[in-house]
Design a protein around this nucleic acid. Structure first.
Lengths: 337, 337
DNA sequence: TTGAAAGCGCTACCAC
DNA sequence: GTGGTAGCGCTTTCAA
């Protein structure tokens, strides 16, 4: 069933059918009704491919992320998909595992499929700045990065103020009387580094001299990472009564390890995580966490990209993405002072 | 840059370029080299749309699920995406929220985009059996359902033996000496009902007379659902020393509620969840859980669909999907007897 | 082994 | 207000 069949059965031309399909003017109401009836009769769905052939757009958005299984990313994907779905787009979800090579592979395929726009989720994608051979694969495709930045034409960003967020979390503990803080960094991304900077900034502002020594680095964000962090703290002989972690799961590990050593949370050591994931409510005591608003972030990315896509050709796109998203500290039992 | 440009620069015809692109025979090695050089020079990527126009396939798979944010679904999506990605396909991920209407909307769009195949994740999609007006939207598109079944041509299934899985979990508790069991059902899907049946089956096999009264129904799978379940148990005055839950998150809620009432887990009440989610290791005590192997399930779905897609036109597709997946009980602290 | 040409199903432009 | 027709960038006959 194609446009010719519809035209034949409606006893008119494909031009008219096309006009009806696309709600263009200049169609006699009677004719319009006649065509619409046939359309309905066959439940006709025009071929998006043939349309794409002409219009150069398939109404498809690519979402690249390190791993769909991470709740934080899944929440963003969900919001972005819902938003674009309501605008008539579909989303292609791609898990790159953080590899630039994989990212390039996806770029090639997406470009070949005339993808209208791309959303990159996570600051890992910042390293694309150093790979012009990869970014050149998606010339002419607008890109928005969630919590990342690449200085290239038609690349847009929405940023989360990780620095201030973690700074505030550390200040909350310090000003609440916890003078011996530690920060656990468990990833090697720009975002993770910015969080750490936030901690160091807080230490500086509060005139704590040994901020840098109070940063604990573990190889992975996982329960085991949290266990390892506590081990390191004890091995170092670091006196600690407050810990901020770059990820909730690591914070949970930290809490478990502390409890095993007979320490009470929050009485002896207060703990704050980051991402406000579902884990925070499962943990015992419930985990205080920095809510970095993934839903808002996703919605803003979708909006910026959609605006760019729907812009008239002459228009200039907004490069300004507005202020960075401010994370909010959700205080729960683990950091009740 | 299109095939004409490549042909012009290679001083040959588009037919030859096409043959080179598709690795067809009957191309003079020298000519092939010449064309390939030009291809490389421009990093030429043929338009998948134009190809799709001719070949009627866009190398795209639709994955429909209730909600990408649920870890159990995300794990399956991940596996399916990786598998199809390696076969040269992209996946469109759609969150339907469990609504048949939404499902129909996606079907329409996917059909218009010449989607090659569809994966339905979750037994909610079983209700499509009663909606021929919806399934008719994707005539000619093969569908595979993960843990569900729709009796229609070109619909395939991979099933998880939920009944036996939960039956074994209940038997484990019973045979371990926990004679007063309860089952918490927290969803209204076929899979949830099958799990409940497994519990009832175990009760029957062990000659427990009041199995049906030992089923607790709560409105949602969440911590709150778990709290509500424990409330109900106490209100009913049900004596219980072992609880099996349809979902991990509910089991975690159950454990929290039990502890609040001063009961020890597992000494007083043993608890088993279902899905072996990351929650199980965060919970205290660590949660025993039924691993229903989402990765295996996803991989099998991908394999069946891929086989169907790559099948020669004459061939008959395998309708048999082999034996159902057997869940495995992962015993952890909460059910150490 | 190569090339010319006919579609694939649509949109958009131009006549009428 | 309507219809004819030229592409869009490919694949695939069919001739040469």
């Amino acid at each position: 069933m194609n446009i010719y069949d519809i035209a034949a059965e409606s006893k008119t031309s494909i031009s008219t059918v096309s006009r009806v399909l696309n709600n263009k003017g200049n169609v006699n109401p009677q004719m319009r009704r006649r065509v619409e009836e046939v359309l309905k009769k066959y439940n006709y769905q025009p071929s998006a491919i043939a349309r794409g052939m002409v219009s150069k757009t398939m109404k498809n958005i690519g979402i690249l992320t390190v791993d769909v299984r991470e709740n934080h990313y899944a929440r963003m994907i969900y919001v972005i998909e819902q938003d674009f779905s309501s605008r008539g787009y579909n989303v292609n979800v791609c898990s790159t595992g953080g590899s630039v090579r994989e990212c390039g592979r996806y770029f090639e395929i997406l470009a070949g499929k005339q993808t209208d726009g791309i959303v990159l989720i996570g600051s890992v994608f910042n390293e694309l700045s150093e790979h012009p051979e990869i970014t050149s694969l998606i010339k002419n495709i607008p890109v928005v990065i969630a919590n990342g930045k690449v200085e290239l034409p038609d690349f847009y960003s929405v940023l989360v103020d990780d620095v201030k967020g973690i700074r505030r979390a550390a200040e909350y503990l310090y000003d609440g009387g916890r003078r011996d803080l530690a920060y656990v960094i468990d990833k090697d991304t720009d975002s993770a580094r910015r969080k750490m900077e936030g901690f160091l900034e807080a230490m500086k502002l509060r005139d704590v001299p040994d901020g840098p020594e109070r940063v604990i680095r573990v190889p992975e964000s996982s329960l085991e990472g949290g266990f390892a962090a506590v081990c390191q703290i004890f091995e170092k002989g670091l006196s600690v009564n407050g810990i901020v972690c770059g990820q909730d799961i690591t914070a949970v590990g930290v809490i478990k390890a502390l409890k095993r050593r007979g320490l009470r949370v929050p009485e002896d050591v207060a703990v704050i995580g980051c991402d406000n994931s579902p884990y925070s409510r499962i943990c015992e005591p419930e985990l205080a966490s920095l809510d970095n608003k993934p839903e808002l972030l996703g919605r803003m990315c979708a909006r910026i990209l959609a605006a760019r896509l729907e812009q008239e050709d002459g228009e200039e796109a907004e490069t300004e993405t507005g202020a960075a998203i401010q994370p909010e500290l959700i205080v729960r039992e683990s950091a009740r002072l």
